[in-house]
Write a protein that binds this DNA or RNA. Structure first.
Lengths: 137, 137
DNA sequence: GTCTTGACAATAATGATTACAATCTGATAT
DNA sequence: ATATCAGATTGTAATCATTATTGTCAAGAC
């Protein structure tokens, strides 16, 4: 346990924003200049291997990270990139699975448009950036 | 419609292998030398926009493509990378979705180990490469 | 003190995908 | 047949997230 790792852990603990590696790097570097991007990836990898963190790949551009360990699904706004947790009401069953295939885990992902992004801006108006995690590119 | 596009369409039609862009490129180039990788991506993009093809992102290394348009889920062997279609017995509902969030679509993905990869090779034996789509790297 | 181990930082390398500029093709109009 | 124009193709360069590498450093073991 090093100061860098502690900082990353502190940032992630209870974090519902599903930050990307870059988000984490940017945040930590403010307090902790001299932090390396590699350390972020190394730490995330350690946490993943230790099962203390989940990688969320709902965003096609980059991995996002989720300290929540209870099984749940995700809902992403395709406009602003915000990701929300959803309880997994009915864990789906792999119907029609071929014999001998051992299923290990399952992802359920929803895509849509959040309320703020769904409000059409008036014609000619500048697009407002309302959501917390603005989509990049 | 050009010869290149026709070739890509022909390859994809009814294809259950969920090929990657590189798979497609390699296959087509055999018959059609002088084919460019960019054309593969362009054509795939056109087909995606036209809704004639689905992008499957279950494989973290690269996108795979699926001509099947009926909603279904996927099951991937984490060992050999093979991807199978599964019927979606119970389309999951976004429980606890916040008001105003308009849900557009949903992905259900299963990960596991296929029968061939699950057979442990005898100690010291070379790993056999059985599955159709061998995992790269 | 010296050795070992692992973490850090900086940077380079990888690899899928996208962007771009130049050329080509094919249809249509003239 | 020729000119024109839009869109497709090609080859290559650029992008960008992620991984690998290398040298350095600090803490604990002996």
């Amino acid at each position: 346990m090093t100061p860098q790792r502690a900082a990353i852990l502190r940032l992630l603990d209870g974090n519902k924003r599903h930050p990307s590696a870059e988000d984490i790097y940017a945040r930590i570097k403010r307090k902790f200049s001299g932090m390396s991007f590699a350390t972020v990836y190394n730490t995330l990898q350690s946490l993943l291997s230790a099962g203390k963190l989940a990688e969320v790949r709902i965003d096609s551009k980059r991995s996002r990270f989720d300290p929540g360990l209870k099984p749940h699904s995700h809902l992403m706004c395709v406009h602003c990139g915000a990701i929300l947790d959803l309880p997994l009401s009915r864990p789906p069953l792999p119907a029609g699975k071929p014999a001998g295939f051992r299923v290990l885990r399952c992802n359920v992902e929803f895509y849509g448009v959040c309320r703020d992004c769904g409000r059409k801006p008036a014609a000619g108006a500048k697009r407002r950036t309302i959501c917390a995690t603005e989509k990049k590119k």
